[in-house]
């Protein structure tokens, strides 16, 4: 591993250069990942709560056209979309967000390679920041991650003191990104940063994901789902704030009789019409079946298909749930 030391001021200078080059700089500011134009607003605070929403919308937008069409009496003409290829640099991504693209990547390259996702993902540089915060909803340690996990980051920062960061260069992409700024980097000492990461307080491990996997396979008809289904109000807030939920819906929007576009929109599995068939039949007609699907998809089906849990343990879904349904608590109870 390549470890360096960088001063905070120098890091901000790099940010300034990133902005000057016309790249997009994303930072957690005021509870969301926002595009930063003025880098003095950047607070690299390892003890901050995860932002209200993840940066998923920058690689998988809430709505986007996938093609335009023109119709005439005899023909339909399809027009391609220009995908925005801007480089995006994310500074200060929490470990639970940083790994999200790696997890979603499987889906977007499964039976079909989604060029919209792939192109944007290729142009992403993720600079992760160690996390020293956790609250009652965090459970990254239960889903094979941790507040000091480098998974998903191209470059990983560990605050040494107020003005200094230890910088670990993880991927080739990260090394390529940082190479023009070699003058700012000083030789680091792995032992010092190791000492810091070892002293980070970890959220308690709430469940064993393997046990949950087994339980889910055997308890499809468990009466537990009904209780949750009665409380859940069927909104998609949990899915939309989730850094790895990736379901989408395709709809056509006509501008006129002859022109229109095909849109790809976020969709949520808790909506009543999510699995509604054209016949009127709905295999997940009641809320308990929909909630069961949510948990199964995250902790069993995705594992079966891609070998990874579809959850980063950020706790956003529980923190934000209007009726305080806590997924950590539910999954912890996935045992007999």
């Amino acid at each position: 591993m390549d470890e360096k030391i960088i001063l905070k001021d120098d890091l901000l200078r790099i940010c300034g250069d990133v902005i000057d080059k016309g790249h997009i700089l994303l930072c957690p500011v005021m509870n969301e990942y926002s595009i930063v134009k003025d880098f003095s607003r950047i607070k690299l605070d390892a003890s901050a709560l995860p932002a209200g929403t993840s940066f998923k919308c920058y690689v998988f937008p809430k709505t986007e056209p996938v093609l335009y069409y023109k119709r005439s009496k005899s023909d339909v003409q399809l027009i391609d979309v220009n995908i925005d290829r801007k480089n995006i640099v994310i500074l200060g991504a929490k470990p639970c967000d940083a790994n999200s693209l790696n997890i979603m990547k499987h889906l977007f390259n499964w039976d079909y390679s989604d060029e919209f996702f792939n192109l944007r993902e290729k142009n992403f540089i993720i600079i992760g920041l160690m996390c020293s915060h956790y609250d009652e909803y965090c459970f990254c340690t239960s889903v094979d991650s941790s507040p000091v996990s480098e998974k998903g980051s191209d470059i990983f920062l560990i605050p040494v003191d107020e003005n200094k960061f230890a910088m670990r260069i993880i991927t080739e992409k990260g090394s390529e990104f940082i190479s023009p700024y070699a003058e700012y980097l000083k030789t680091g000492d792995e032992n010092i940063s190791k000492q810091i990461t070892e002293n980070v307080k970890l959220p308690k491990v709430a469940f064993d994901s393997n046990e949950v996997y087994e339980w889910l396979g055997e308890n499809f008809e468990s009466p537990k789902w009904e209780g949750i289904g009665n409380l859940c109000l069927s909104c998609a807030k949990c899915a939309f704030v989730c850094p790895v939920c990736h379901c989408f819906d395709i709809v056509d929007e006509d501008y006129s009789y002859t022109e229109g576009r095909r849109m790809k929109n976020w969709d949520g599995c808790q909506f009543g019409n999510f699995t509604m068939h054209a016949s009127g039949h709905n295999p997940r007609d009641i809320q308990s079946k929909r909630y069961r699907q949510r948990v199964n998809h995250k902790f069993r089906y995705y594992v079966d298909k891609f070998g990874e849990i579809l959850c980063t343990g950020c706790g956003r879904c529980s923190r934000g749930c209007p009726v305080s349904i806590d997924i950590k608590e539910i999954v912890s109870n996935c045992k007999d």
Binding site: K62, C235, V241, W266
Partner: peptide, 10 residues
């Protein structure tokens, strides 16, 4: 707005 319809649900 991200159309999660939480406003409608609650």
């Amino acid at each position: 707005c991200i159309k999660c319809y939480a406003c409608r649900a609650v």
